[in-house]
Amino acid sequence: MLSFPEGTKNDPKCYVTHGVMGHLDPKQPPVKRKPFAAMLKYDFVQKVELILPEEIYEIMKEVLDQLPKPVYSRVILPLKALLEGEFFNEYIKKGKPCLSIFAHGNILMLSEGTLGVDDSYSLREGILTLHLDKESYERAGIVGKPDGVKGKRGTKPRWVVEINLRLPSMLHGKKGFDRIVYAFKNVLTNPVTWLFHDLSIAAVTPDPLDPHFPVKKTVSPRLLQDLKVNRPSLEPPKEADPTYGADFEDYAIELQEWLALVLLESPRISPDDKIDPFLSRYAPPGNSQTNTKLVKLTWQGFLAPTWAHKAFVQVLLAAPQEAWFAYCVGGFGEGISGESKNCTILRLPNAPKEYILWEVL
């Protein structure tokens, strides 16, 4: 972990890892070791971006075109609809996450609202999470815990409630469950817009969501070609440095900044950039740069972490041994600032098993 000044305990931090991927079995790709585990930490994924040289894209184009296109829905529902009829039975009670991430009944749901500001809700693996202000929490009468930083000036107290709807006790007629139903029918009554993603391989017929008139969205990649850049050396410092000191720290910070500018499609990294140095003095890191054409693919929508993981494995298997690429996964914004968790994986050139991983948490 890079060193940070004091007083940043609750601020986002960037953790950098330089490691070796090890053996990759296409039939059983890793899920618990880095860098594969990094993208599975997210509850929901909002954007996936892939950066690679143009000549490598031409080689991998067919594989990239065959990646499955995620489908999600936008639907308006009150909270009580989650606990009623076939929706509750098919999508929540029948889920079996312990057996397979694609088991029947596994769904992801995320409501509108800014986390830390508005009342917002999410559903993942049968666990319904409610982020509530103090008034809504007290009126609902369900048990939760304080949310956010305690005693932070300028913020109102908030609460988070987690309800595992797959517990055997979560049935109509049970006292605890009926209390939740009462809160949803009498306190948390406003219909909200949800993003809905079904992880099941086989669709439910008839779909319990159809009576609510969902609007389906298909995520297709946005392709940006002919992105001319000054590319710095991507290789980490070669001198033995078991403590990962200043040389590696400078390398990690400067390269992460360059990759961020590529993602932003900034003109500062273009070889034709002629900006006045009074306005910007940025230059790619290192003493030597290479003029390169890059391709960037972007998938944006309501994506499952499992899809991001599967796509990364497919890209890794299809990429030539000596090629480099960067794979970036971003979550949804949190709080007033809209900052989100994200990770960037760089497979190093001429070292097919080595990677650099940046995790902003």
Rank of each mutant, 00 (worst) to 15 (best):
P53L: 00
Q46Y: 04
E135G: 08
G141V: 03
P305T: 13
T290K: 12
L264R: 11
V71M: 12
T243M: 04
V45E: 10
A38R: 05
K34N: 08
I336T: 03
E112G: 06
A308I: 11
S288R: 14
K80I: 15
S233F: 00
N10M: 11
F36D: 10
F278C: 02
E249I: 09
E55D: 15
P70N: 09
V315M: 02
A140F: 02
M1W: 07
H172F: 10
E112N: 04
N190M: 13
I163C: 14
A351Y: 05
S169M: 03
R231W: 01
L199R: 11
M170Y: 07
A326N: 04
F88A: 12
D65V: 04
Q66G: 09
A81I: 12
H131A: 03
V229S: 06
K93M: 04
Q256C: 10
I56G: 00
E138P: 02
Q28P: 02
H23P: 08
D198T: 09
F184C: 09
I253R: 15
A38L: 04
L115G: 10
R124Y: 02
S288Y: 11
T193N: 11
L171M: 08
R347Y: 01
P232G: 07
L361I: 11
Y251G: 13
V360H: 06
R281L: 09
G85L: 11
G338R: 06
R281E: 13
A326G: 05
S200D: 08
G22K: 10
T114N: 07
K32F: 10
R166I: 01
V117M: 10
K341P: 09
V63Q: 12
F88W: 14
K175I: 06
I51G: 00
V315K: 03
P284K: 12
L167F: 10
L24V: 14
D43L: 10
